[in-house]
Amino acid sequence: MTDPILKIDAVSKRFTRKPGLAERMVGRFTGGGKPITVHALTDVSLDVAKGEVLGIVGESGCGKSTLGRVIAGIHAPSSGSVALNGRPVADERHGTVHKLTTQVQMIHQDPFASLNPRMKVGETLAEGPRYHGIIPADQVRARIRALLEQVGLEGAYADRLPHQFSGGQRQRIAIARALAMQPEVLVLDEAVASLDVSIQAQVLNLFMDLRHDLGLTALFISHDLSVVRHVCDRVAIMYLGRLVELAPADQLYADPRHPYTQALFASIPTVGTGRGRFEAIKGEIPSPIAPPPGCPFHPRCPFAGPRCRAEAPRLTGAGPARTVACHLNDGGVNMQRGAA
């Protein structure tokens, strides 16, 4: 890799929480009120190059948002480290997480929830840069207007309230707010997921323009494989808190190697392939509270062998610039090493 700006090294994140009402009723096996541990991320390592757009794909609950938050310094990892330009992004002391950088900014799915309804858009945009002294006070107004224009809105919109904007416009405002902090890295968490296709195309075009104009590095989290293919250079596929495949986008789509990636691609309806072609993945997504032993995909994997039930596969090289966590790529599934 040419110039890794962001290094995610063996990151695991566990959440411990009290069981909910439903869980207490369902899971009498948890022993009533005992705390539950959710394995949101397990041993995730990734390098992101400067100027790269890395896609993070997977089904709900696989840890995409948690990874985004760990990178943005909102959560501290339970173990492992995240460093931007060699410096940690967060620091946890006495159970409190301190964000150490403004250089990573996050954009969320629901643009309305992330904007203060009573604050004029210009004020919302100015808040962060003012607080952190990123823009000199006498330049804030002009800069905010310029930012609004940069995301395809009118400068005069600074004086309006969020409810006066459509969903697509609000997402542009959320992007402008992140850019106001002059970040090196953007984390977009399902940022176009709630937009209609015609509006989604507009926001994707804006993102591609900004990325080139500003040389942004970005993590693009999405469950939509065709959107990811369109805007990302490289793609990481996650399953149950683990990274299962990492490859340049063109190679991944042309030739997915991990059985889960293959199954995911096959089960997704696409426009124009004709009707009735669903090769659905069997079974349900297991719970991250009690992930299956060995390979987390083994209960649903058509290729699973004895080794898969006993031993978690490592990420191993599968050609230049790509890695896969599957025993098929690392000696086969039938060895009994470590089997119970």
């Binding site: 065709s226 369109h230 805007v231 426009v271 124009g272």
Partner: peptide
């Protein structure tokens, strides 16, 4: 609508978009 679907375009290219909302 069909034109604005990313899957039908070469990756990285600007998507044709319907103006307005």
């Amino acid at each position: 609508l069909l034109d604005s679907i990313p899957a039908l375009h070469e990756p990285g290219r600007k998507l044709p978009q319907i103006p307005g909302s």
